[in-house]
Simulated scan of single mutants.
Amino acid sequence: MALVSAAATAWSLLLLAATLVSAAPPVVTDAREDGRPLPPEPLPEAIAFAACALLLFMAHRFLRAVRTDHLTRRALRLLCEGHPPDTELIVAASSIPRAFAIPGRAGSPGRILVTTAMLGALSAEERRVLLAHEQAHLTHRHGRLCTVVTLAGAVNPFLAPVRRTVIFLVERWADERAAAAVCDRACTARALARAALTAG
């Protein structure tokens, strides 16, 4: 729905902006020939110029969001270079506690990148929860959902709350899948709380 709303917003502004260059629609011409009184212009030029300005603003935000997403994915994939292509879990030697689900390209399932600092902060059972959480992101393609709402929010800033909600919900979705994987909701809650506090 966010994608449809963003596309509808862009299309509406494009139609408004097009009145600067297009002639009156045929239906308007026919109506005038029938003697029906119609305004000389269907839309004031000021509104069309405002629509052009908004389209440029939206295009700038959209391109910036696409570039940021591309650079982020590229940086995460660079961290995985040098590992065999069938390696799903990569442990990076780092004092910064982090865990990422890195979506794969077409035909690739993706990878999980965890730092040694994050693994060291968790018990063995809590590590299982963390990995199950990240695996759920890959299995259910949460990265794609987040990318779609991020790009939609870039086109239409009023969709920013939708983006925050979707990101929150996919995290809860992964939490529930992790709890189902380890069959221990209490341990899942402890692990996720400890991971979040450690990363924070």
Rank of each mutant, 00 (worst) to 15 (best):
V4I: 05
L89P: 11
T150A: 09
L138Y: 02
A92H: 11
T72E: 13
L20R: 12
A8N: 00
A65W: 05
A93M: 01
R98N: 02
L76Q: 15
D86A: 02
A24T: 07
V21L: 08
A31H: 00
V162A: 12
A124K: 09
L38G: 05
A199L: 01
C187D: 01
S12T: 08
R177Y: 08
R144Q: 09
L113R: 03
V182Q: 01
S108P: 01
V148K: 07
R67W: 14
R127Y: 05
H83D: 14
G143V: 10
E33L: 13
L14C: 11
V166S: 00
A191P: 03
L14M: 04
A124I: 12
L71Q: 15
I167S: 10
L119N: 09
L15V: 03
I90H: 02
D69R: 10
H137T: 03
A196S: 14
N156W: 10
T72Y: 04
T188C: 15
P37Q: 08
C52V: 15
C146V: 14
L20D: 11
R105L: 14
R172W: 06
R111K: 09
A181F: 12
M118C: 09
H142Q: 11
R144W: 15
A196P: 03
I96D: 02
A132L: 05
A191V: 06
G82C: 01
A59M: 10
P109D: 02
A17Q: 03
R185A: 11
D184Q: 03
R127Q: 13
A106I: 13
M1W: 04
A65H: 08
R185H: 14
R163Y: 03
R164M: 04
L55Q: 07
E41W: 01
A2H: 02
G35R: 01
P44Y: 00
F62D: 07
G200Q: 13
L119S: 06
H83N: 06
D69L: 14
R128N: 12
V170Q: 02
R64Q: 14
T198S: 15
L131E: 08
E176C: 02
I102F: 05
R111M: 08
C80E: 06
P42N: 01
R128A: 09
L13G: 03
A196L: 14
Q135K: 07
P157V: 12
F62A: 09
L71H: 08
S95Q: 11
A10V: 15
C187N: 12
C52E: 07
V27A: 12
W11C: 03
P157W: 04
P44E: 07
G143H: 05
V91F: 03
R190N: 13
A46V: 15
M118Y: 08
T9A: 12
L16V: 06
E171I: 02
E41M: 12
L122K: 05
T9E: 10
R64V: 09
A186F: 09
R74D: 08
P37W: 14
A92E: 02
L56S: 04
C80S: 05
L89F: 10
A132F: 06
I102G: 00
L16M: 12
S123Y: 07
H137W: 12
L71S: 07
G153S: 13
C187W: 00
T9H: 13
H70G: 01
